[in-house]
Design a protein around this nucleic acid. Sequence first.
DNA 1: CTGGATCCCTTAGGATACTG
DNA 2: CAGTATCCTAAGGGATCCAG
Lengths: 137, 137
Amino acid sequence: MTRRKKQEGTPVLPGKLHEPGDCRAISEVLSRVGDKWTVLVVSTLGQGPKRFNELRKALGSISQRMLTLTLRALERDGLVTRTVYPTIPPRVEYELTSLGCSLLDPVNSLSTWARKNRPAMEEARRRFDTAEGKSAA
Amino acid sequence: MTRRKKQEGTPVLPGKLHEPGDCRAISEVLSRVGDKWTVLVVSTLGQGPKRFNELRKALGSISQRMLTLTLRALERDGLVTRTVYPTIPPRVEYELTSLGCSLLDPVNSLSTWARKNRPAMEEARRRFDTAEGKSAA
DNA sequence: CTGGATCCCTTAGGATACTG
DNA sequence: CAGTATCCTAAGGGATCCAG
């Protein structure tokens, strides 16, 4: 990256976008959003505020460690709020912020894509694997 | 999970979706799409077919190992095609399939969200971190 | 109930060297 | 040029125990 030889940054595509900063932004957001639990947590919270163990049960297989870490990260990024009721036993509620809600939108679009195209992907995968098996055998 | 006390599975949200299989589909797709390079590669290929080293340069910092792995996965999932021209030196072109192109759409929606809201996220992060610093100090 | 701390294993992923 | 193979480190993430 010390010397670029020919101006690689020049956008080629007419209607589309390809600013240098965009990719950074996207991959940064995606590494948050794309981790193992974030989306599940966010879309679960899309149903309304939930307590820690409610989330845990709703998500099924998440470890409490990962749930804590995920929620902390989401809180840090301003996507959820964490409200502690200093009762005994303690009660903590998590809720999407408006920023968090706004994330539901692109996520749903991806979710729609996923449901629609997963069969195609799985078939492609099967074909690829069997083709591979043929040449390997 | 042995005894549910009160029917947790009942959907609460009216217009939204929460089928059990959906989450699996979404997180499965997201673990493909959300990995470190997939989106970058796909959106780079959105500009048109590219050769291996073209991609490498366009992506800047990817290792050739990761590029190979990413491309293989994308090919397996039917998102890109790999065309080998048996010349010397060899020439291999990668191109999005129509399935791959269709993925650009939700990705762009996420990308738009990312560009629009990254400032808010960063500010939230800053606030969170300084607040943490205060109580830690 | 919420969640921090620790242990430990698995995976992701970069650097490098080698091949057709 | 376009990979494959190997090595190695860091991060992801589960299980478990401890504490307010």
